[in-house]
């Protein structure tokens, strides 16, 4: 079963919940798809880590074969190509690796080579396999790295996906194939605003989902009213505690530090398994 953990708002407790679920499962794969800021490994501290690069295709031009016809330059919809003094130049950060230039070239002068855009690491922390996608700095989109991390994680057993924050493309890529989605929020107007966006994403992706309210305690009745109106189940409430905040701050796993947290995550995993059938 693949469980995706999302939160519209960053800092709502997505990594806390994803790590907690992987711990509760005991034997599991935790895959960090928050590739701009992969932090799960700071908690699991995996060992025997193997890293491999994630590549995307980039055109390379054969100057001998190129006739300077400009077809590729004119058809590239991203304007990644320029022809100067009869020789094409490619601009990597503008290129989307779509392959159009190679396809339209009448001379077969375009070949494609891999360009590194990030890395996927895999290591073990006890029964948990920790897979981390990390985007190279300066790269625009994490989507290829997310796809590679999910592929590395596979589909065997319980796979917990720590998604990027927000509700844009990379989140969709990370949550698309999930059997169940957990939406983590906090009881604030910001939390509710961003939760609405992720809930809309769930409708678009047609994924079953439920909500975890983190830092519960402070009163924000608008959140409960909205959840009830939407018919979204609350799977768990995690009360704010200074001890939990401190454990997270120092990179310690809440599940292994705190009896109350353990009960919450065990219960949460059971509820997800029931709901996902």
């Amino acid at each position: 079963m693949r469980i995706a953990v999302l939160s519209g708002k960053g800092g709502a407790g997505k990594t806390l919940v994803a790590c907690g679920l992987a711990c509760a499962a005991g034997e599991a794969v935790y895959v960090d798809c928050d590739v701009e800021e992969p932090n799960g490994r700071l908690f699991f501290r995996p060992e025997q880590v193997i890293s491999r690069p994630v590549l995307r295709k980039m055109p390379v031009f054969d100057a001998e074969k190129c006739s300077g016809c400009r077809r590729c330059v004119e058809r590239c919809r991203f304007n990644a190509l320029v022809l100067v003094k009869g020789a094409p130049m490619v601009f990597g950060e503008v290129c989307h690796s779509c392959g159009l230039c190679a396809w339209v070239c009448p001379e077969g002068a375009v070949r494609e080579e891999g360009l590194e855009v990030g890395a996927v690491e895999s290591g073990r922390a006890g029964g948990i396999r920790v897979v981390t996608g990390e985007l190279k700095l300066g790269e625009a989109t994490g989507v290829p790295v997310i796809a590679a991390a999910l592929e590395e994680a596979g589909d065997e057993g319980t796979v917990v996906v720590d998604c990027p924050p927000g509700s844009a493309c990379p989140v969709m890529e990370a949550a698309r194939e999930a059997d169940y989605c957990v939406l983590v929020t906090e009881p604030t107007a910001f939390g509710l605003h961003d939760l609405r966006l992720v809930a809309e994403l769930m409708r678009v992706l047609k994924r079953p989902c439920g909500v975890v309210v983190n830092k519960a305690g402070a009163d924000f009745p608008e959140l409960d009213a909205w959840l009830e109106a939407e018919g979204l189940p609350v799977l768990a409430r995690i009360p704010y505690s200074r001890a939990l905040a401190a454990a997270s701050a120092e990179g310690r796993l809440a599940y292994r530090q705190d009896e109350a947290a353990r009960r919450i995550f065990d219960g949460l995993l059971r509820r997800i398994e029931e709901a996902a059938g």
Binding site: V73, R77, F78, N79, A80, L81, V82, V84, V94
Partner: peptide, 18 residues
């Protein structure tokens, strides 16, 4: 031609200048 480009405007403008 760069003025209305979706992305890569500077490159398209540079092509025209070249």
């Amino acid at each position: 031609p760069g003025a209305a480009a979706e992305g890569g405007a500077g490159l398209k403008a540079a092509q025209a200048a070249a």
